[in-house]
């Protein structure tokens, strides 16, 4: 079992026969001792790569990702250029060693899809119209995967974009909610993702400390409309926590510059 199972089949398909031996909720706690609405520990560091315009290293539980942003820069091949706005390219990639079973290197169906939906989340947020004929490239590499890598990547990419000084209408913060053993849990880890009934990653646009809109929702598995509403509220709460950590990471790097002589 690894992260590759995400999205390959309907959740719970393999669950039926394993219902007896795997219990994901024990005594009202999750397997790793978290409460239902508790995030995994998060570590964010901005500006880790020297040659990138903006970069970020992020750990979300056992997920480890690094994001790099280049641009605005000239677009090659030239025919991809847009005469009135910048093109955004987002590449999500998993390192072969990021999962337990070696992953075949290179883009596959899953990572192409994640790249596409993540890019689409950023399209309305980045002010593309300011840089006609140019391109903004976002690269995220998953070094270690433990469920919810797309959310970790989105969070890292946001910090990297801010670090690169790219004009944006707000910040994107992302977190997933899963349904395991009939209960909704925030920020699922691998076991919950693999044996759970549903996994719903969210991404929000946050402006001035308020959630403005939803930038991405996907769903793998099944959930009732009522559950979906509660899941959204849970995700919003979790996203606000991550948002403050993202801010903190930038403040840590640039906070020293707050005083300027005049």
């Amino acid at each position: 079992m690894n992260e590759m199972d995400e999205g390959l089949g309907v959740k719970g398909a393999q669950k039926e026969d394993k219902k007896e031996d795997i219990r994901l909720i024990v005594d009202g706690k999750r397997l790793d001792g978290r409460d239902f609405e508790e995030l995994r520990p998060i570590k964010i560091e901005a500006g880790v790569l020297k040659r990138a315009d903006g970069s970020c290293y992020l750990e979300m539980g056992r997920n480890k990702v690094v994001a790099a942003v280049y641009g605005p820069r000239e677009v090659h091949p030239r025919h991809l250029q847009e005469p009135s706005k910048a093109v955004i390219r987002y590449r999500y990639n998993m390192a072969p060693f990021s999962v337990e079973e070696r992953k075949r290197p290179g883009p596959d169906r899953r990572s192409v899809e994640i790249s596409k939906v993540s890019r689409e989340a950023y399209e309305p947020v980045i002010m593309k119209e300011l840089f006609p004929r140019s391109g903004i490239d976002i690269f995220v590499e998953v070094l270690q995967a433990d469920a919810g890598t797309r959310t970790a990547c989105l969070n890292a990419a946001t910090v990297a974009l801010v670090d690169a000084g790219i004009p944006m209408r707000g910040l994107i913060t992302s977190v997933a909610v899963a349904k395991v053993d009939g209960v909704l849990v925030l920020d699922p880890m691998k076991e919950e993702d693999n044996y759970g009934e549903a996994d719903v990653p969210f991404a929000f646009v946050i402006r001035n400390g308020r959630i403005e809109s939803i930038a991405l929702v996907q769903m793998d598995g099944k959930m009732t409309a009522e559950e979906m509403k509660t899941a959204t509220e849970m995700a919003k709460k979790g996203a606000m926590e991550i948002y403050s950590l993202q801010r903190e990471a930038i403040m840590k790097k640039y906070g020293a510059m707050e005083i300027e002589e005049e």
Binding site: R169, L171, M251, I259, E262
Partner: peptide, 15 residues
């Protein structure tokens, strides 16, 4: 001219 601290702001902050 005002002298002293200048706040660091991030995209989307109300100014």
């Amino acid at each position: 001219m005002i002298t002293g601290s200048r706040k660091l702001v991030l995209p989307g902050d109300l100014v």
